[in-house]
Design a protein around this nucleic acid. Sequence first.
DNA 1: GCGGACGCTACAGAAAATGTAGTAACGGAG
DNA 2: CTCCGTTACTACATTTTCTGTAGCGTCCGC
Lengths: 104, 104
Amino acid sequence: MVKRVRGSKTGRPIMVLLDLLGRRWVLRIVWELREEPRRFRELQDAIGASPTIVNSRLAELREAKLVELDAESGYRLTALGRELLRLFLPLHLWSEKWVKAVAL
Amino acid sequence: MVKRVRGSKTGRPIMVLLDLLGRRWVLRIVWELREEPRRFRELQDAIGASPTIVNSRLAELREAKLVELDAESGYRLTALGRELLRLFLPLHLWSEKWVKAVAL
DNA sequence: GCGGACGCTACAGAAAATGTAGTAACGGAG
DNA sequence: CTCCGTTACTACATTTTCTGTAGCGTCCGC
């Protein structure tokens, strides 16, 4: 038993995944790592969250094998993390369209 | 200024979107509405969150024009919401693969 | 006019996030 | 060998958010 499933008791993969991704800052961290590895502080400054929460989210993402820490370069996406990111890339374009529709 | 951009001051569409989707239960609610409309209580029971938070997330999703309330059938995805969901559908399959890779 | 389903709200207590400060390990300069 | 900077990370009091439970007001069928 690897994961704590917060939002769902079912343990169905999609629920576990949605639970993980639905935590504050998780999507943002993955997004921030999309191009290149980042140092802890660098990441923290970029997203503007407290070190406490950045650290615990990184721990969760590392446990989920989506992110890893390389001593040379910093935090970076694993192969699995890059796969996930690839699924999210279309969001970038779509978000532009969405914002226009919502007219913020 | 319509939206509170919690996680980012930039107002860049992708950041606003990631902020919205990164709130607790939001992804789960969108997922729960993927097939058919749901009533408030039905939705609440399905995800197991408090009515308070279900209501406020639904309000946010309605403001974001991703969800709407139809008196006849209940809460459902808008056209925009269905577009977003379509981007997320591959997650379902991917999550199965991911769980196998993580649960060593 | 009673009962049930509906969306939704109030509110106290619990949990999570913030903001600030600080620790411990390492590596290089003097 | 000290000092300094950089690294990841932790402690903790304060603030914000979420939960759990109860209940409100409206509509509709009986």
